[in-house]
Design a protein around this nucleic acid. Sequence first.
DNA 1: GGTATTAGTTTCCTTAAAGAAACTACTTTC
DNA 2: GAAAGTAGTTTCTTTAAGGAAACTAATACC
Lengths: 127, 127
Amino acid sequence: MKKEALSSSSTGCKTRILAINDSMEILAGKWKFHIIGTLMLFEKLRFMELLREVDGIGAKMLSKELQDLEMNHLIKRTVLNTKPLTVEYELTDCGKTLGPIIDEIAKWGITYRSTLYQKNETSPAAI
Amino acid sequence: MKKEALSSSSTGCKTRILAINDSMEILAGKWKFHIIGTLMLFEKLRFMELLREVDGIGAKMLSKELQDLEMNHLIKRTVLNTKPLTVEYELTDCGKTLGPIIDEIAKWGITYRSTLYQKNETSPAAI
DNA sequence: GGTATTAGTTTCCTTAAAGAAACTACTTTC
DNA sequence: GAAAGTAGTTTCTTTAAGGAAACTAATACC
């Protein structure tokens, strides 16, 4: 019986794969890490500040991504009753728990680059 | 002078953001983490085994993702001269360095879920 | 010869992601 | 009253991602 030799391995592995799917569903898209990373740096930022700070993003995208992140309790949105009305965005405690992931990803990105440069001179993909 | 109070912060932060972009460009898409995670578990898998193991993926997607990963030196593709011709995929040393990222993401996914269940009973987004 | 397995590729199609520009609504400053 | 700044939303369009099914080509088995 060769069949079902592998397929849907031990229970812990399923949990692991589901956990990865959960994380990536929340963090998917071009801008999530960028926005979260920026908020880690500046602590509190207003909409227009984020729009200037997150390089290349448009108002629509920023608005949508912020809503996503707020829905998932990663950032907090506070409306201040200032004269022309400003809104402040900041990471929640839950959002701050993403620190290690972002650190790990940033670290990998840096070592990955330097590894490639060491191994071959010919640019291997999109360098 | 209120202007340029923030915008394009210290040099290290730019590097960090670029590194994150690098990583995510390579790891973007619905299936990358899934495939890599599976190859971490099984060490070596043939195309058809991956097709069965990676839940829900189609032949076209798998083929494309494997090519991407190979281009970026994260997996190695070996053609065996067996009777009906088989191909073996495995992680490279470089690919294996993704271990900590995947661990961190899986860990976060699990604690994120449990945090939500502790805080509120009402399902907050896609639970 | 007919069926099955291997590893894909090709074609066609749908949906989701992303961006540009214009627009709303309110307030302050000149 | 006109201009500019706040925080978005709306509309329209393009591009990318992803999937289903059929197909190639080689070989082996019965």
